[in-house]
Design a protein around this nucleic acid. Structure first.
Lengths: 354, 354
DNA sequence: GACCTGGATGTTTACGTAAACATCGCGTAA
DNA sequence: TTACGCGATGTTTACGTAAACATCCAGGTC
């Protein structure tokens, strides 16, 4: 023991003094110490059969002594796969992205895959392309794209070949596998819930127009109103932030009795604005959010909102991309994850006219 | 063009029909197409000098035609480094972890490093060790540990050798490089702010006892009160969630005029409980939070809180671990990132007696 | 006792890249 | 004219692993 420094340095020739970047022990080092061939070490390392118990023990001991750990680069080079998935996203500032990422990481870990993050700070098309290029050079077998904005334009982004892709929250179902939340169903449920409570119509505090999720929630709101034959009030816009919801809340007219906000954060700001204006929720005006973030149950009042199953979205992403990797086939189409309305205290019957 | 399928299949011998796992084009393939040696391709790929313009153009064209992208496994094997950092964390459900991770990812990307996630679902010691073992086998040059709980016990966790480690939010400064927020300073500022407004004493809604951040905030609160010679009210405990803050809010006695909550989510729940009990904030009672999450500016009322600079924490983590990698030296000690009090509307002068 | 069987182990080779070294050819100085 | 220098390019080799193949030996069969 203790000759660790000399391990692997027995190369013939001079100039061995130069401390070339210290690497960990290799199979050859372990093999030498255990008095076996490196192939046997490999067999032990991978749990292959055909190694007698005594040899195995000796090899394991040698491994421990040298602090051996397999070199995954060599392994990947040999196998031609990395057992790693890349996740490209714009930021971690929205709840949905984070929760989805968390679920993806968990699912991937369960399948023995690691997750490599590839954040794109500013979502310009140049940057997106750059991210893909870098991801292509990285050690990934597949890519999951979590996009808030629909920049997945085939004409500007060239996906690396031989890499499978799954996309979250996009309209690219004709070109990629897309996993998405049932935005329309959720938005429709929110509107119908409010109409069912007797409200004449429902205002909508929309997310940024370049967000696909926001677009679809808005569309569904519009459709639901039209199908019910209600008048369509003007749109309010926010940028997902609570602050933008607060500003929008100042613009809500007095005769509005119901608002559907495109996410919970904006609903939070909306609630504050209404509170400051002395409009009671839900007695004077009802509010519905979207996402069901944990905090929404503690808003004043607790928020009625549309629950998104981010965990399921993440699971399906991993399942999808792994299936594609195994089959070497690029599936297409969109899988929808259902939502459900969570009724709390921010919605109530329409105030009687008067 | 279009003979992509045959690329690299010109091996001598039979049985070539079996579609062995299709790999991307290699340097050899590009070299063949461009009529140069693979070494020249390597030079072009890495931008090394000594390639005449015409050759370079031809090689680039061949690369494009074959969709060549460098195999990072081979590259890593050759270099002995992966240009990747591993991040081990328990979950992505707390704001701090997420924001820190985001900053880490950005800083790392700027340095040309990728981030590999290693989530540990349940923070038992066994799992933590498992995570480290797996990370050791992964392709990482360094590890950043984002810990909410102090499980970094040297006796149970064996860090892989030859891998540098930086730890966030822990007391392991004697064994690792630790980057941390100035919890004590922030908590002290919160308490002193409230005392300065004339409050007799300050109650504390603490985080879970096994969280180091929570412990230190509690200690600093205690110290600040004692130094000011105030009576120390009993501790209230939460689990960081808004819901737990709400429950704690029901226990706050009527003669309490100031509460320091260990994070903003709990403060949110606290605000709701106080609101339901008819206690006005800040006229009857003041509340201070910790973290300064974006939403806290939209609470009712907007929350006075302690701002944490997660971005700076992330930056310092990456800087620290990269420096260690370059110097091959394990630094020790703790670097503190300052906090600052953000005054909003949830704090005000103590109500006059009687 | 020669021969086969099969399990345990060793040897060879290839994965894709890039450093180190070798070669080639052209221009220039003696 | 010859030799030398140098820039452009080619050849060899090693990185650590594991599949494929080779070898060896004990035990059983006829």
């Amino acid at each position: 023991m203790e000759d660790r420094a000399g391990v692997g340095t027995s190369a013939s020739g001079a100039g061995a003094a130069a401390p070339r970047r210290r690497r960990g022990a290799s199979m050859a080092d372990v093999a030498r110490l255990a008095g076996v061939s490196s192939q046997t070490v490999s067999r032990v390392s991978n749990g292959s059969p055909g190694v007698v118990e005594e040899t195995r023990t000796r090899v394991l001991a040698a491994m421990r002594e040298l602090g051996y750990r397999p070199n995954s680069a060599a392994r990947a080079l040999k196998h031609g796969e990395f057992r790693t998935l890349g996740v490209i996203l714009f930021n971690l500032s929205t709840t949905g992205n984070v929760r989805t990422l968390e679920a993806i990481a968990d699912s991937a870990a369960r399948e023995g895959y690691a997750i490599t993050l590839m954040p794109v700070a500013v979502p310009t098309q140049t940057d997106v392309r750059g991210a893909f290029t870098r991801l292509g050079e990285l050690a990934v077998d597949g890519i999951i794209v979590i996009m808030e904005v629909h920049l997945l334009d085939a004409s500007t982004i060239s996906l690396p070949p031989h890499v499978q892709v799954v996309v979250v929250d996009s309209d690219a179902g004709d070109r990629y596998t897309v996993v998405d939340t049932d935005q329309r169903g959720g938005a429709r449920a929110a509107v119908e819930h409010l109409l069912g409570l007797g409200h004449r119509t429902v205002w909508h505090l929309a997310g940024p127009p370049d967000s696909f999720a926001a677009q679809r929630r808005t569309e569904a709101w519009l459709t639901a109103l039209r199908e019910a034959g209600r008048t369509v009030p003007p749109l309010l816009f926010g940028d997902w932030s609570a602050e933008s919801g607060y500003k929008a809340g100042k613009l809500v007219p007095d005769d509005c009795t119901a608002v559907f906000a495109a996410n919970d954060q904006m609903a939070l700001g909306l609630l504050r604005a209404l509170h400051e204006r002395g409009r009671r929720v839900p007695q004077d005006i009802s509010v519905v959010g979207f996402d069901d973030i944990p905090e929404s149950a503690s808003f004043i009042p607790p928020l009625t909102t549309v629950h998104q199953d981010f965990a399921e979205v993440g699971r399906r992403c991993v399942d999808g991309v792994l299936r594609q990797i195994r089959d070497q086939s690029a599936e297409r189409g969109t899988a929808l994850v259902p939502t459900r309305l969570v009724r709390r205290d921010s919605t109530g019957p329409a105030p009687s006219d008067g």
